[in-house]
Design a protein around this nucleic acid. Structure first.
Lengths: 131, 131
DNA sequence: CATTGACCTTCCCGTCACTGGAACCCCTAT
DNA sequence: ATAGGGGTTCCAGTGACGGGAAGGTCAATG
């Protein structure tokens, strides 16, 4: 299989697949013409990576997850631990975004949004720090 | 005022302030010794920028907001527009994170997290795409 | 046989908003 | 004289790719 086929099948851009090879996440063979030759296992691993990335795992998390995936003597606790750490980071981000969202929504609500210059949003951002 | 004072007063790292000068968000004067000499207006603008960044506005948004802040003939609608666009991007991000969170929480819940290798998380990530 | 067009290759730069670090200068106090 | 705590510039790195150039390869067509 060439990179285009793998790209179509996994939904990953060819650029991304080449990048994953670059950082040693996959190691496809090479055909005589120099093209990357992907095996079933490469395809499978790339699909795995695509799904893990879609869940927001970092590349390094993905590397660890793949290693566990291929380790028959893994303990599911190791996997769960990585997932839980990640979940907690997601929760942090959500909380931060919701806090921003609340402030912003409040300011937007207070702003007339008309042709006049008076604007509570700018007033808030420009509050004097020396007071 | 030197950069250290401004850093303390605004809470922005000195590195960040230098970066903001680099991209022309602020233009402090220079003392004879080559040190940056910040005026009240610079301080004020940097505080503005810090707050806007804390609300998640991009640097380019900040540039536009500062311009509006300094424009007496602005229309509050312009400000509100920027803020609403930003709010909608925040909402998109929150939605995406919550979707990840839901999937992830579900998988974590299904995983025993013990010494055995069986793991629904890895099973999900490794699902066969050819089927 | 030549050409077209779709594929593939490597390589390098750009993204975003900084952060770290090196190498160096300046100022004040001891 | 020295020590420390400022300040300066410049370069490189971050994460996870994406864009685009310059060129090689392959299958099908005129």
């Amino acid at each position: 299989m060439n990179i285009g086929d793998v790209s179509r099948m996994t939904g990953l851009p060819a650029k991304t697949i080449r990048y994953y090879e670059d950082i040693d996440l996959v190691t496809p063979l090479r055909s005589e013409n120099g093209y990357r030759a992907f095996r079933e296992t490469d395809l499978h691993k790339l699909a795995f990576l695509g799904r893990a990335r879609a869940l927001g795992f970092t590349i390094e998390d993905c590397r660890a997850l793949v290693a566990l995936y291929e380790d028959d003597s893994r303990e599911s606790a190791s996997v769960k631990h990585i997932a839980e750490e990640h979940l907690s980071k997601i929760d942090d981000k959500i909380a931060q975004l919701q806090s921003m969202r609340a402030t912003l929504a409040h300011l937007i609500h207070a702003c007339a949004g008309d042709h006049r210059p008076d604007c509570p949003i700018l007033e808030d951002l420009g509050a004097d720090i020396t007071k």
